[in-house]
């Protein structure tokens, strides 16, 4: 599904790559960009976290004429005189000015590296609103966001993910170079599909899927449909018939002390054993402490 999202650049798509301290999602982001550039699309990057050289590093220079890097890295808050791009420029108007640098006719993808920077300086509601405006504006085909999910509250990350058509959560794999991507994709009809894949990014930024985990392609089951009967294949009966119930009620259990049983035990019957005790001379029987003679 990861490759599928990468290759079909759906109109109005909003893809969020979530990463944490343990696993950086930027390589995957670059893989997405590389893929879009190869399709001869225009990619605009609002880069806040790495410098331009570092960002372009690894991307094939044959395709990079379609890549426009807007430098928010050197001065994201406008501390110097003429900042190229600051977080305060995160408005549809300013972004559209950025986008107008490229040819109009091609499909345009906007990449934000990373949204965490913007979220730290804008309220989440405003960020969500502007993202929606950008998608509706029509200048963009799709938006691709990198988000450090461990830097924000769960609710904020959640509300951003509600906007997205696909959320990719990267996590370190069990061994070696692989990374696990947990993808959740929402189609227009409202169907949600989830998949877990192991992938690796090669030197030239092509992404290969190494393994697919079990829950592939399955939609979330409807709860009614799948309510399995736990008592289906039992080796014993859970319910009693009328006859069985009567028989059960008749039976007296061994620990129940009926009147009969009591009298039978209290009145010695002939032939029943009796205990006779004759103390010998050494016995010093103490009524208070019958266990006196035990060596404890």
């Amino acid at each position: 599904m990861l490759l599928d999202i990468m290759q079909t650049n759906e109109v109005g798509g909003l893809v969020i790559i979530q990463d944490t301290v343990d696993c950086c999602g930027r390589q995957l982001l670059k893989g997405f960009i590389h893929c879009a550039l190869k399709r001869d699309e225009v990619v605009h990057v609002l880069g806040f976290e790495v410098c331009e050289n570092e960002f372009r590093g690894g991307l094939d220079s044959k395709f990079t004429q379609g890549l426009y890097f807007h430098d928010g890295y050197t001065d994201p808050l406008g501390w110097t005189e003429c900042p190229p791009l600051t977080v305060h420029h995160f408005t549809p108007q300013d972004i559209n000015t950025c986008l107008s640098q490229s040819e109009q006719l091609k499909t345009v993808t906007l990449v934000v590296d990373s949204l965490s920077w913007i979220l730290r300086h804008h309220s989440p509601a405003i960020v969500c609103q502007r993202l929606q405006e950008l998608r509706r504006g029509g200048a963009l085909r799709s938006v691709l966001l990198l988000l450090h999910s461990d830097m924000h509250q769960q609710g904020i990350v959640g509300s951003l993910c509600h906007l997205a058509t696909a959320v990719i959560l990267v996590a370190p794999g069990m061994s070696g170079q692989h990374t696990v991507a947990k993808t959740t994709r929402r189609t227009k009809s409202g169907r949600v599909t989830r998949e877990e894949e192991c992938f690796s990014v090669s030197e030239d930024l092509t992404i290969t899927i190494e393994a697919q985990s079990s829950c592939s392609g399955k939609t979330l089951p409807e709860p009614e449909e799948y309510e399995a009967d736990p008592a289906a294949n039992l080796t014993f009966n859970l319910r009693l018939s009328e006859v069985e119930r009567e028989a059960k009620e008749k039976l007296s259990l061994p620990f129940v002390f009926s009147q009969e049983k009591k009298s039978a035990l209290l009145h010695p019957r002939p032939g029943a054993g009796r205990i006779l005790y004759e103390p010998d001379d050494n016995d010093d029987f103490d009524q208070e402490d019958p266990d006196d003679d035990l060596d404890v």
Partner: peptide, 13 residues
């Protein structure tokens, strides 16, 4: 090692 810089390493640290 978080694999920043110009060198391209895997996404995993």
């Amino acid at each position: 090692w978080r694999g920043h810089g110009s060198s391209v390493t895997g996404p995993q640290t």
